[in-house]
Design a protein around this nucleic acid. Structure first.
Length: 483
RNA sequence: CGGGGUGUGGCGCAGUUGGUUAGCGCGCUGCGUUUGGGACGCAGAGGUCCCCGGUUCGAGUCCGGGCACCCCGACCA
């Protein structure tokens, strides 16, 4: 369905986001409050995320499996912190088949517990380890305040769950998967994420430590785009996941879990989008090239469409996701705007002049207006297109990196300066003791929290004074307002 | 869950001190002309005015009560 433009990003970022998501046909509201309908174009984008992650999981030795949507309520209660963390947002089924259930069933908010139960059955010896499982699933968390893709009551994600013989192995896995997420985010989604460890306050309920990749949106806010948890032996003990080691001694496993959700789609939208709408990195774009045929009268239609069809076939054969916009009720100008709003990286215009001159017009989405438009030969068009797509992919990452770098500041001068940076809508990188009281104070003063202690510390080996309490700090952390 | 706002064709809105056939723009359908940056003409279709109750000769409009959604704050991938 044709739509007019979106609210300019500069005018109202929230509305821009809502507009883009709906007008670019990514998603729609549902009759159930807080849930969403993912439309085909949005789902294709999610599929690109899914596929990009899935092969990486398999490459690192993981297998997919599927566990039940319903979890016995008692399972959730086995790990103390875990219950406490999730209790407020659980959906619970108490009636089935018209009868009250003996034990209520929780609709999974995450699957550590039921997978823990299964692992306990599957693991006996150190020879069964490591056990590397992933599942693609939907989960439900009863959220009060929702936003399409960023926070909905039901969302799609993948959750990896692994069990290891030693803490060293489990931690290595935790970090390996964080790296996989960063690799996907940077190289496929063109989002320059920061890998780091969450503070104790911000970690997953039931984890020893949580790690995240943090991304900066175009409004300066932070978005956690993926998390990886070192669960220690907490769930192993709660679910009795034990194995016999080489010396025939019974030991508890060390487990991990890690997840990326449809929130990644929101991250892509808010990292690259501009005034006119979406801008999609070629590697995840459902449509990489859109061809808009242009012809004036019937006599021109034949030759133009011959060229269009030939080039379409060539591009498609080369594995490029290409679409021909042959809607005959819309003018070319309308189509240009329409596809720009939808974020298609490269537009190809083919008209009578191009047929005559053996050329096509190429317009790249990452460079607005005429500056991004060029006329190229039809000879070697596949190579030209592949080259431009690579270039756009790199350019979007570069633009996002530049934006992010220019909106984060290392602050070690004073707490007042630190507050100024955060209230100015930017990120502060400061020495932080990690204390709960300090974290609470920042939240109180700015509504921001720590995002993570980056793995790559700016001053490795050095120590400093916590920007909040002045106490000893051996790491710096990012602070920002977040989604 | 607190504060503010909005409910009128698919979408965005107008609708006066209550007054009879509820309008406008976009979109949609048909035909024709158009087509290199958001085309145009003609002819059409499409409405329980969020719901329930009340006041009145008469309610989209006034009153009471619900419900839904949106925005801003406390909790979260």
């Amino acid at each position: 369905m044709a739509q007019q433009g979106v609210t300019p990003q500069s005018e109202d970022f929230s509305r821009w986001y809502t507009d883009v998501v709906q007008k670019a046909d990514l998603a729609d509201y549902s009759p159930v409050r807080g849930c969403m309908i993912i439309k085909p174009y949005g789902y294709e984008l999610w599929e690109a995320v899914r596929d990009g992650l899935d092969w990486r999981f398999k490459e690192t030795g993981h297998k997919n499996a599927y566990f039940p949507l319903f979890i016995p309520e008692s399972f959730l209660k086995k790990e103390a912190e875990h219950v406490e963390g999730f209790a407020p947002e659980l959906a619970v089924v108490t009636i089935g088949g018209g009868k009250e259930l003996e034990e209520p069933l929780v609709v999974r908010p995450t699957s550590e517990t039921i997978i823990g139960w299964a692992f306990q059955k599957w693991i006996q010896s150190h020879r069964d380890l490591p056990l590397l499982i992933n599942q693609w699933a939907n989960v439900v968390r009863w959220e009060l305040r929702t936003r399409l893709f960023l926070r909905t009551m039901e969302f799609l994600w993948q959750e990896g769950h692994t069990a290891h013989a030693t803490h060293e192995d489990a931690l290595a896995e935790t970090m390996r998967m964080l790296g996989v997420y960063a690799d996907f985010a940077i190289n496929d989604a063109a989002i320059p994420v920061i890998q780091g460890r969450k503070s104790q306050q911000e970690r997953f309920a039931g984890a020893l430590n949580s790690y995240s990749i943090e991304a900066m949106m175009r409004d300066g806010k932070a978005l956690q785009a993926g998390t990886s948890h070192d669960l220690g032996q907490n769930f192993a003990k709660a679910f009795d996941i034990q194995f016999t080691d080489e010396s025939n001694e019974l030991q508890y496993c060390w487990t991990t879990s890690w997840g990326v959700s449809t929130r990644m789609v929101g991250a892509i939208v808010m990292t690259h989008g501009d005034e006119m709408g979406l801008r999609l990195p070629p590697k995840v774009a459902p449509v990489q090239v859109v061809i808009v045929p242009i012809f004036r009268k019937d006599a021109e239609q034949g030759p133009v469409m011959d060229t269009v069809n030939r080039i379409f076939a060539d591009l498609k054969a080369a594995g490029i996701r290409v679409h021909v916009d042959n809607r005959d009720t819309m003018s070319p100008g309308f189509k240009f705007n329409d596809w720009e709003m939808r974020g298609v990286p490269l537009r190809m215009e083919i008209g009578p002049k191009d047929v005559e001159k053996n050329s096509v017009a190429l317009a790249r989405r990452d460079v607005p207006g005429k500056a991004g438009k060029e006329f190229v030969s039809q000879d070697g068009i596949v190579e030209t297109v592949l080259d431009r797509l690579d270039d756009i992919q790199a350019s979007l990452l570069e633009q996002a990196t530049e934006y992010r770098n220019s909106h984060l500041h290392e602050v070690s001068s004073s707490y007042a300066d630190f507050i100024d940076v955060i209230n100015g809508g930017e990120w502060a990188l400061s020495w932080f003791c990690g204390g709960a009281a300090c974290e609470a104070k920042v939240k109180e003063d700015t509504a921001a929290v720590s995002r993570n202690f980056p793995l790559e510390q700016p001053h490795p080996g050095e120590t400093g004074k916590c920007i909040i309490c002045g106490g000893a700090a051996h790491e710096m952390a990012y602070f920002a307002k977040a989604y």
